[in-house]
């Protein structure tokens, strides 16, 4: 029984939150990796793109809520999500036409594009703060739990409860749908194939008549969808704060690099590797250990490897270790 309790406590505090967080990071990392593979630069504005997309979704959600439109037990934000994606897509394509296209045609060095993305990051960050403010915004409504800790306890008779928040369930389901759709698109459709061809070998792709501007356009649209979905899911699960989204840049990049930049499958694996390590290393294992170990061995302290504030250190250390021993990432990525 104690052993079961230990497993449930572990699942409640590590497995479930880690899976949800991993799915959010994976979606973010997919965006970074697609831009890297096709546009060939590290997009520092990605965190703020996520914030920007989420801001659209929040504003539309508020609009729906004031009109009295709801989504039953599910959060209204899911209804607003498609509109948010369209608006973010328009924003990104507009940014590309206004800003990035010029440098792409000049064939500048990738690092100049990174610099340009810094400028875009500043503007997006400023606009987000300007429109919605720098403070925390909560916008989730509907049912809070799929299973609450108390229900779980009465159901199983265990001492430990396993709570699954609705947002965590939605995160996982949405992420699976989005990823399945993305891979179908990349592997089966003509446009998707041309994107992969362009990513693998630009010159050959151009020779076989692929229109680069079209590839770029689709990339931005997909990135907009991924970023908005990732940002909205993260905001529903935790809360929306522009600065937090900016800070997500580090774990997202870590996930993309650990998986191998430019490799979509790697981005997903990387997202979960980073998320689980962060949650595991910063979780206080006292409770689990109390159940799992005999009394004599039970720890006195919290049995926490590192304090929660060092979660950046975790993604960073994993990043460095992978880079030192496997410079192209776990799955083979490309290098510029």
């Amino acid at each position: 029984m104690d052993f079961l309790n230990a497993i449930v406590a572990f699942a409640n505090f590590v497995l479930v939150p880690g899976t949800a967080y991993g799915a959010q990071l994976a979606l973010g990392a997919l965006g970074v990796t697609l831009i890297y593979g096709i546009l060939r630069f590290s997009n520092f504005a990605h965190g703020d793109t996520m914030a920007f997309g989420t801001m659209y979704v929040i504003l539309i959600t508020w609009g729906f809520q004031s009109l009295g439109i709801g989504f039953g037990p599910l959060p209204t934000a899911l209804l607003a999500l498609p509109f948010g994606i369209v608006l973010t897509g328009l924003t990104l394509v507009g940014t590309d036409k206004l800003v990035y296209q010029f440098y792409r045609q000049r064939k500048v060095k990738p690092v100049v594009l990174v610099m340009v993305s810094l400028g875009v990051m500043f503007i997006m960050n400023g606009l987000t703060r300007f429109i919605i403010g720098p403070d925390d915004q909560r916008f989730s409504d509907g049912e809070r739990f799929i299973i609450s800790a108390r229900d779980f306890k009465t159901m199983t008779g265990l001492d430990e409860g396993l709570a699954i928040k609705t947002t965590q369930g939605i995160t996982l389901v949405t992420a699976v749908i989005v990823v399945a759709f993305l891979f179908w698109f990349l592997n089966k459709t003509r446009t998707g194939k041309s994107m992969r061809a362009y990513s693998d070998n630009e010159d050959l792709a151009l020779l076989s008549g692929i229109n680069p501007e079209r590839v770029v356009l689709y990339t931005w649209l997909i990135v907009a969808a991924l970023a908005t979905v990732a940002g909205t899911l993260y905001g529903l699960d935790k809360s929306f704060k522009p600065f937090t989204y900016f800070q997500l840049l580090l774990p997202i990049f870590a996930a993309a690099i650990v998986g191998g930049l430019g490799n979509p499958l790697g981005a997903i694996a990387g997202g979960f590797v980073i998320a689980f390590s962060e949650v595991t290393v910063t979780y206080a294992f006292k409770k689990v250990a109390n159940y799992a170990l005999p009394e004599a061995l039970a720890p006195d302290g919290l049995a926490q490897l590192m304090s929660t504030d060092y979660k950046f250190a975790v993604s960073f250390s994993i990043l460095i270790i992978v880079l030192l021993f496997k410079p192209t990432g776990l799955f083979k990525g490309q290098s510029v």
């Binding site: 800003v99 610099m115 340009v116 810094l118 400028g119 875009v120 990051m121 500043f122 503007i123 997006m124 960050n125 400023g126 606009l127 703060r129 300007f130």
Partner: peptide, 9 residues
């Protein structure tokens, strides 16, 4: 922030 971004670009 907005101004700095615009200046940089």
């Amino acid at each position: 922030l907005l101004t700095m971004g615009v200046v940089l670009l």
